[in-house]
Simulated scan of single mutants.
Amino acid sequence: MRPRFSPIFRQHASLMRATLLAAGLVAGLSAALPVQAQATPAASITMEGQGSVSVSPDMAVITARVVSTAKTADAALSENSAALSRIIAAVKKQEIEPRDIRTSGFGIFPRYKTASSSSGGQPAIVGYEVRNGIEVNVREIGKLGDLLTLVVNNGANSVDGIRFEVSDPDEKLDEARKKAVEDARHKAEVFAKAAGVDLGGIVSIAETGTQMPRPVMMRTEAKALLSSNPVPVETGEQTIGANVTIQWALK
């Protein structure tokens, strides 16, 4: 004879079966999910390195100009062109390549007389001024002094300036970059040794700045160059630099 249970007992039994089933499902799902380990940050060291190279400018750019005035634009232009042609011919005789010679700054300008009451307040044109310039790349600094005197003696009456430059700045910058990396590694090795660890592989490396040489300007009056003696020239030194930041893993 099967035992008979009260309705209240049967209701509690059903609730218990449902609770046990839910607990079993949760346990099964937890077992199926992968266990995620807590990520532990790897030990590392970050250092900044600096490198620089001192260089002497090895080329210069001369900017000279011929300024001619005359009563007519035609006459001023003719005089100006003749003087500039003499300068170019003289420069070429100094074994300066055509690619290093270029004209620049050509212009024709009217010259006015101050207005008077008799002219009705309108300024009158009394002549014309023609300007034309020449830029010469001097790749042998030793020729610079002679060339400055040469262009003035052949008709240049305005020397706008002399610009000193480095002909291969990118190569010198690469040298500075190598020194910056060496500097950063040296610092990292000192710290790692002091801490009793070894450097591992590089995690990241980034260039954080560069220093390029700026053109050095030298200005002088054309009259000061009217001499048979070459102009004394001192180029001085400039600095090319690089900064780098490198991160290493620590073993």
Rank of each mutant, 00 (worst) to 15 (best):
G24I: 14
G120C: 12
I108H: 11
H12I: 07
K179S: 07
T72A: 10
E79Y: 01
I88V: 14
T103W: 06
G120F: 07
D74R: 13
A89L: 02
L148F: 02
S14Q: 11
A192L: 09
N157C: 04
N229H: 07
L147I: 09
K251H: 06
Q211I: 07
A82G: 07
D174M: 15
A13W: 12
S104I: 15
A249T: 11
K93A: 15
A18M: 08
S167V: 04
F106G: 13
S228V: 00
N154C: 09
Y112K: 09
F5I: 02
R219A: 04
S85A: 13
A64W: 05
D58F: 12
P3W: 10
T63D: 14
Q122N: 11
G120N: 07
N243C: 00
E207T: 03
A115F: 05
P169T: 07
I202A: 04
A70K: 06
A194K: 04
A70E: 03
A82R: 11
D170Q: 13
I101Y: 03
K179C: 09
P34L: 03
D74T: 10
P57M: 01
G155R: 11
T239L: 13
A89N: 05
R111H: 11
T40K: 15
V126W: 03
E175Y: 06
I162N: 03
S104T: 14
S104Q: 14
S6C: 06
G107Y: 12
P213E: 05
K172C: 02
T208W: 01
V91W: 08
A242W: 10
V151R: 15
K193S: 13
S54Y: 08
T40Q: 15
L33M: 14
E95I: 13
E97F: 01
T245L: 03
T40E: 15
K143Q: 14
P215T: 00
T149V: 13
A242V: 03
R99T: 14
S228T: 02
I246Q: 08
E48I: 08
I125H: 13
N80D: 04
R111F: 08
I202L: 04
M47W: 05
M16W: 04
M218Q: 01
V35T: 09
L173F: 00
S81T: 13
Y112R: 08
I205T: 11
E207P: 01
G133C: 12
L15P: 00
K143R: 12
A22E: 00
S14Y: 15
A64L: 11
A73I: 11
V130Q: 11
L77D: 06
A23H: 04
L147W: 12
G127L: 10
K92I: 10
S68V: 00
G24T: 12
G236V: 05
A184E: 06
E221C: 00
P213I: 01
I141Y: 05
D58R: 07
R163A: 08
A22D: 01
S30W: 02
